[in-house]
Design a protein around this nucleic acid. Sequence first.
DNA 1: CCAGAATGCTTTAGGCCTGTTTTATTCAGA
DNA 2: TCTGAATAAAACAGGCCTAAAGCATTCTGG
Lengths: 175, 175
Amino acid sequence: MLRQPPPSRSRPARASDRETAAHPDDHRALRLWLRMLTCTQLIERNIRNQLRLRFGTTLPRFDLMSQLERHPEGLKMNELSRRMMVSGGNVTGITDQLVKEGLVERVAQPADRRAFCVRLTRAGTKVFAEMAGEHETWIVGLLSGINRREHQDLLALLAKVKLHATGAGQGKDVG
Amino acid sequence: MLRQPPPSRSRPARASDRETAAHPDDHRALRLWLRMLTCTQLIERNIRNQLRLRFGTTLPRFDLMSQLERHPEGLKMNELSRRMMVSGGNVTGITDQLVKEGLVERVAQPADRRAFCVRLTRAGTKVFAEMAGEHETWIVGLLSGINRREHQDLLALLAKVKLHATGAGQGKDVG
DNA sequence: CCAGAATGCTTTAGGCCTGTTTTATTCAGA
DNA sequence: TCTGAATAAAACAGGCCTAAAGCATTCTGG
């Protein structure tokens, strides 16, 4: 994705993915970004496939349920929206699906009749526990190419990136 | 996104985004993954917004054009699909849009009447050049929170992640 | 030559996601 | 109290994306 540096003159491109044949220096940032993107997509795609094949579900649904698991008392739609970093309308749609599947429920709020609390049902809790276990082993496997020290370094570097990119973003979703 | 470690007993969560309140050690991989995902999404969202506001276009369209810029002779649909790491049907749709906007063209291949070459039009070349310049400055800005040394470290660490995750992926898109 | 397999692309159904608009409700101030 | 601003959620239009099915063309082994 995104723009790549132009092909190198000296070394003809036998490109196979998006970041091959990068220029040596001026395009450092671009190259780094493309690599981040590729890594994330590789992992994400893998997880999506596993979720689909093993459990017949999707990443957004899993994500929503995982938020609810951490808050058994339930979350309002707008809280879900903020935590998942997606739009409110999107949360409406995903919640609808999960309600249809009987995994979550909307609970009316007497205090504010505009709002709902969304909660895992008993069935949802059970199903999620099963999925979450496997999910973690997938992640561990996908990231097992780097050792513990490298984990820490990567985590720290990404913390810096996150901090700066959050600030640079135009004031939305600063967490 | 994705499952988070359960909330810490000792330190009550004032969570605001998806990776707050992680457990100390056992969930290292999960935590790292969530941070990768957050970073990528922050940057990607920023770029999408900029493309929309400044140029009225989208990231996938920009991405497709950027592939074509590197191959003025044109690329076949399936080559685009492979390079962009998206499905063939998706490439069909994006190409349709860009053709409608007059930015790319499908060129029939006499040698193989099933296939097309997709190329930037003159207008597309011009428009893309303009966008690409700004695009790079956005990326540079978003990643300016880390210095040159850190860039290199991050690039190297992600290379390891990429390599391993590519191998672990079930044989598709090994680039 | 000629079936059948493989290839290149499109179509279709369905889900995700966004920005915008709409509806219902709550809040804040005159 | 009443009116307008703000908020919560949903509806809507439109684009992205996938897997699977379909159509045309090319290739391959008899």
